[in-house]
Structure formats: structure tokens, C-alpha cells
Write a protein that binds this DNA or RNA. Structure first.
Lengths: 366, 366
DNA sequence: TAGGGTCCTGTAAGCGCTTACCGGTAAGCG
DNA sequence: CGCTTACCGGTAAGCGCTTACAGGACCCTA
């Protein structure tokens, strides 16, 4: 096999210079819009560039400029096994990535994407190699341990998503606390529901634990009753939500007036299980979700939930990284406001949904 | 604002060499596993690398090696406007990309992603700049005109997806012709349906035109009746499929025994419209889809369709590109086999579905 | 006409890495 | 004991680009 070394036909700035009858410096200046070249020089360079359809080599520019104009994004890849059912739960990753990508285009950056499997041993090694090809890294939720983060952060700036800042890295997240708080208040204060429960997500998720904490605090503050315990532990999936409700019902437990689900997926499962037993939502039991996935509005009844600005989250992550790459030393943590989206599954009448889903902004930007 | 020029703390191979008390050549050799360094030299280098947590700069390596170990992927981005409803139809893009990414990891490559909006004027400019940062490009369906392709292909190797090869570029696609052929035969030969129709996709899609052509040829060959005309023009979306069926019904048209839909989305819409009029599937009208999206199996009745190996399509695209990058001069077109997935919407009994969805491979690899 | 600006353009250094080439050292052999 | 051979490791060139610096051409003024 022939050596993969330099492709034969690679054009360089020298070829352009020769053809235009100028020096490489002039070519470079024209291409970068620097200096004040004579109109004629400019045109000759442009003409040569066009005729040869010359494109500057990115690595050479990067080496010379000390700027690659590339950021890396690292995210989880679902195993093949759970592809079918769990796919939807990975969807939000793509939405966030889209946000990163769109924003980076505005700055002339490109995005290097790398997924890591759940059981990927040498992820760290791959990531460090990848870091060497970028100006900065965006790490999705819980991609790396704290020491892993410190390691890559010593190579390039790092911003994590939905985590927390470390001495070396920055973080961007949504203000889920406020979202949960608004949700619970809506149920126990606005609707006067006196008994509620939190159908949780995976127990090992810090996000889930934070939500549970807020939930409990708010319910207690309002003096409402609360059902808790292992019977209420879900896992963020629809199947998990359905299983929890089904087994509660099988055990003869009296359901609370309202169930706050850890995610929309969970809510979908719960609603499904309730429907099977003929229990009406929201008349008998109110249900709420979290995330506002696209189908949430099309459920019967339409799901009351909390919308996280995923695309904006990605955009913000890039923005923060970008300013850091440029040497600015901004906030180490950004918190984006979330929005309580009131539809009908909480017991609100249909007319209310449109109104409330607009205005009611909840949260703060930090 | 401080110059974005060279970050202060950047470690280089010189730092490692100094710390290890060897020359940069030795460091490089150890890092690349070349030559036969003495064990002691090796260890000292490795120790220094580890202590400094040194990572080689990607651009410098790329410049020196003539190989960036990066491929670019370009795909359509939905406008914000049609995000909600059309999102699902963009899903397959992410599946393909996942295939590209996974395969490229195996070769130590990373993937540079760039989306282009529908109305993006200077897409070509962005893409050429991006090409300069990569060793090769994968272009999703109809991203660029033929001249656009020629332009970028003069910079780096290019493989297109679901298109056709050009003198400068390669192509990877699924054998939809065979899929359509198998589907139509299943309906007119196995089921003996004597009247059929093709509910088309967007008229400007070559893919759609090819499917229509095969459809007509097969139906004619089997001597069955065929309904055609503008009334049968859909647009790949569920709404489009529903609209076509509804207006047909409104016009009092007698529906054919079977309707072949251009996509699963279309089939979903069509089935919805039929259900609203109380027309039973498959007893009154058989319906088939195309694509085998994840929900297809969960519809009522489960949808008979043609599965395209999306992930594999991506993987193959990378593979082809990779060997081309390495100078190999392989096939300019790869055609992947598709699979007829027989479920119940065609009129087959439930039991048949499992069996047929396994074995029946249709198509050839070219 | 000489001196001093202004503009523009070219020369060359250097970005961090790989690697061809060469020189030094040690081992093997007559 | 001197010379060949093998083996390592260092020096330096070069990848394609940007840009500091310097030089040339031209115009203006005294």
C-alpha cells in the first residue's frame, strides 16, 4: 500500500503566489483581509485562488495562529442493545449539540464530535487526543470523573453541561431547582392538592437527587402530605414510570392527588399505566413531567411540564467556551432559566394552557 | 482584549524532552512507537509525558504527517420553524452520523460536523473552509450541486450519501429499488391485490422518482391496476399523507386495495386519515411504509415496510472515505442491501411478522 | 536635487511536530 | 587490539501558513 503521507496534488499558498506573480505574504494578506494591498494585487491573488480553487490548509493555519477554530463535544452513546426503546431519551443530546453547532458557526468555528460508549475504558485517552485537535471541549453530563476533567482541562478550556464547575472547568446548566419549585407550588398552592408524590429518576443521578430535595422542601413548606419510599423509584424511562404506578396499584396503595414525574418519559409511562386501570388524569390524579419533549403537548391530556432551553444551553456553552478561548475570564457557572409550561395534566382548564405557556418565566440567570 | 494568539502555557515536545533529558526526536519516537528506543529512554519519556500531562498538538502533527485524522460530515439543519413537526424526519440523519462516528473512532479519526440551513447562501464557502480542516468529507443527501461537489472534491476526497457518484466523488446508498420491488411483489403477487397506488414523496426528490418508477414497472409487470396522478402526490410528511387520503376520500374516489407510501411518516398519516373514516387496515386497504422508523412496529396494525440500514450506511461511508484517504482506489459506488420487513399492515397474519422480519434479505452489495 | 514620508511588497523566521540522516558508542570478530 | 557492524539518539530540515521587519518605489517639500 502506498504511504498515506502527503497527497500528491496538494496546492499551497506558494502555487497561488507563483500563479499570481506575487509573494506568499501578499497571498496570505489578501486571504486574511489584512494590510492594504493594491487593488491590482488583490485581484490577481483572488483570480489565482479562484482558478486553482485553492483552500488554505487548516492545520498549517492553526499551527501558525495558535487557534484551530475547532471545539470538541463529547457525549454518551447508547449501547446498541437499548437503542430501540431508549433512543428518545438520547434525543435531547442532539438538540443541545445542534445549539453548540449553530452558535459555533457564527464564530467560524467547527465542531468535533465524539461519543463515548457506556463501558468505554480508554475514553480518557481518546478525549485527550481529541483535545489536542481542538481549542476547547464541551463535555455532556457526567462524561468524566473530576480527575478526568482536571486532566483534559490542563490541555484546553473545558465547559461541562448540567454538572457543576470545578477549579479547572466551567459549567452551564438549567435552573431546574426553580422549575421544580414552581411546579410543586402550582400543584399544592394553586391547585390545593394536599397529597403528592415524586416519581423519581435514576437514583444515582445528582440531577434527580436535587429535584427530589427541592420537591420535598416545597411540599413540606406548603404543609401538604407526601408519599415517598423505594416504591416511588423510577429510572427516567417510560417503562419505569409505568412499572412504578402498576406495582403501587397492585399493592393496593391509595394514590396521591398529584404525581410529579422526574421526566416526561416517566410521565408518559405513568399516564399509560393509569389509563389501563381506568384512572382519569387529571380528574383523579394529576400528573406532571419534566423536560417538555416535543410529544408532551400531544398527549391526552397535554402534559404540564418544565421546559429546559436545550438548544440555548448548547449555544451558551459554546459562547462561554469561546470567550474563554479568547482569554476572557468570565463566570465559571451559567444558570439558564427554565419555563413552567402549564397544560392540562395538572388539572388546569384547556384555555389556560396557551396563556401560561407563554409568560411564566421562572428562574434567574447567574 | 488580549490577543487570542498563542496561549501562554502551551507545552511542547521540547518541554518533555528537556524534562526527560533526551532529544525531541526521542520523545516523538516513543510517542509514536517507532524505532527501538532503549527501555530506559522510553520510560523517562513516558514519565515526563505523564508528569506534565502532555498531549501532542493535533495541527502540528497534521501538518507534519499530511494527515489530520479528521473527516467532515455535512447535513441539513431544519429551520427553526418546522422544528416541531418535522423533527422526526431529521432523526435518521443522526442515526447515520452515529454510524460514521462510531466507525471513524475505530480508525482513530474524529468527526467534524457541520449543518447547513435550507437557505444558507454561503454554504459552499463554509464547506470549503471546513474541507481545509479535514482529510475527507461525507455529504448527506443533496447538500450541494454537482459543481459544488466538484469544487470541494478538488480539495479533499468526497463521498455522498444516497445520491449518485460523480467523476470526482464516491457515493453510498441503499438498494431502495430492490426494496420497492420486493414490497410491490409481496402485495401484488403474494397477496394478489389487483389495484394499488403509490402515495409519493416530494416530487423533486430523485429518490422518490426512482421509487415511483420501480413501483410502476413492477405493478405493470404483474398486470395489476394502478391509480396515479397529482392526487397521489405527498411530501414525505405525515400531514401530507393524511391530506392526500382525506382529499381522495372527499372526492369520492374509490381507494385501491393497497397503498404503498413513500415513507413511514406518510404511512402514519395515511393510516390516521383512514381510521378517521372508519376504513380498516389491512382488511379494507393495505398500507406499507418505507424506512422502518422505530415506531413502525408499534403502530396499529404494525407497519409492513422496508428497512434501510442507516447506521451501516454511515459506517460504510466512512470506510470508503478512509480507504480513499489512504490512497486506495476502490469502488466509486456502494449499494447496501435493504430488508423487507413484513408485519401486519399489508394483510399478513401476526405470526408471519417475526419470521419474515428476520430472514428475508433483499438486494445486493455492489 | 536631496531628504523624508507613505505605501506596498517581499524575505525570512517560527508555530510544534515527524523523520531522514549522520555520528558516537559498544559489541563482535579476526 | 584494531576494525567492522549494529544500534541508538541527536541535529536539522521541512510540513503550509502568518507576520515582523526591512527594503523599494513614489511623492512631496525645501
Amino acid at each position: 500500500m502506498p504511504e498515506p503521507k502527503k497527497a500528491k496534488g496538494t496546492l499551497t499558498i506558494y502555487d497561488v503566489a507563483t500563479r499570481a506573480g506575487v509573494s506568499i505574504a501578499s497571498v496570505s494578506r489578501v486571504l486574511n483581509g489584512l494590510g492594504t494591498p493594491r487593488a491590482e494585487t488583490r485581484e490577481r491573488v483572488l483570480k489565482a485562488v479562484h482558478e486553482l480553487s485553492f483552500v488554505r490548509d487548516g492545520s498549517a493555519r492553526a499551527l501558525s495562529n495558535g487557534l484551530k477554530e475547532v471545539v470538541g463535544v463529547v457525549f454518551r452513546r447508547g449501547d446498541e442493545a437499548l437503542f430501540e426503546d431508549e433512543y428518545e431519551s438520547f434525543l435531547y443530546i442532539d438538540v443541545i449539540n445542534r445549539g453548540i453547532e449553530t452558535e459555533s458557526q457564527r464564530r467560524g468555528f467547527d465542531v468535533l464530535m465524539s461519543s463515548v460508549a457506556f463501558n468505554d475504558e480508554n475514553a480518557l485517552q481518546r478525549l485527550t487526543a481529541m483535545a489536542g485537535k481542538t481549542d476547547g471541549l464541551v463535555l455532556h453530563d457526567r462524561m468524566l470523573s473530576a480527575v478526568g476533567i482536571a486532566r483534559v482541562a490542563s490541555i484546553v478550556p473545558v465547559v461541562t453541561l448540567a454538572g457543576s464547575p470545578t477549579p479547572e472547568s466551567m459549567n452551564v446548566r438549567c435552573d431546574n431547582e426553580s422549575g421544580m419549585r414552581a411546579l410543586v407550588r402550582h400543584l399544592v398552592v394553586d391547585h390545593h392538592y394536599r397529597s403528592v408524590a415524586y416519581l423519581s429518576g435514576r437514583g444515582d443521578s445528582p440531577d434527580n437527587r436535587a429535584r427530589a430535595r427541592i420537591f420535598e422542601a416545597e411540599v413540606a413548606a406548603a404543609g401538604a402530605d407526601m408519599q415517598t419510599g423505594p416504591a416511588w423509584h423510577g429510572n427516567y424511562s417510560a417503562a419505569g414510570g409505568a412499572a412504578v404506578v402498576a406495582s403501587l396499584l397492585d399493592a393496593g396503595t391509595a394514590l396521591p392527588r398529584a404525581i410529579v414525574c422526574a421526566s416526561d418519559q416517566t410521565a408518559i409511562g405513568a399516564m399509560h399505566a393509569l389509563a389501563q386501570r381506568g384512572i382519569r388524569v387529571p380528574q383523579d390524579v394529576a400528573i406532571t413531567g419534566f423536560d417538555d419533549v416535543p410529544v408532551a403537548r400531544h398527549l391526552r391530556p397535554p402534559l404540564t411540564t418544565v421546559r429546559q432551553p436545550m438548544q440555548e444551553l448548547g449555544a451558551k456553552a459554546f459562547e462561554v467556551l469561546y470567550s474563554r478561548i479568547n482569554g476572557a475570564d468570565g463566570a465559571r457557572e451559567i444558570v439558564l432559566p427554565v419555563q413552567l409550561v402549564v397544560r392540562e395534566s395538572c388539572g388546569c382548564p384547556r384555555s389556560a394552557s396557551t396563556v401560561a405557556s407563554r409568560g411564566s418565566l421562572v428562574g434567574k440567570e447567574g
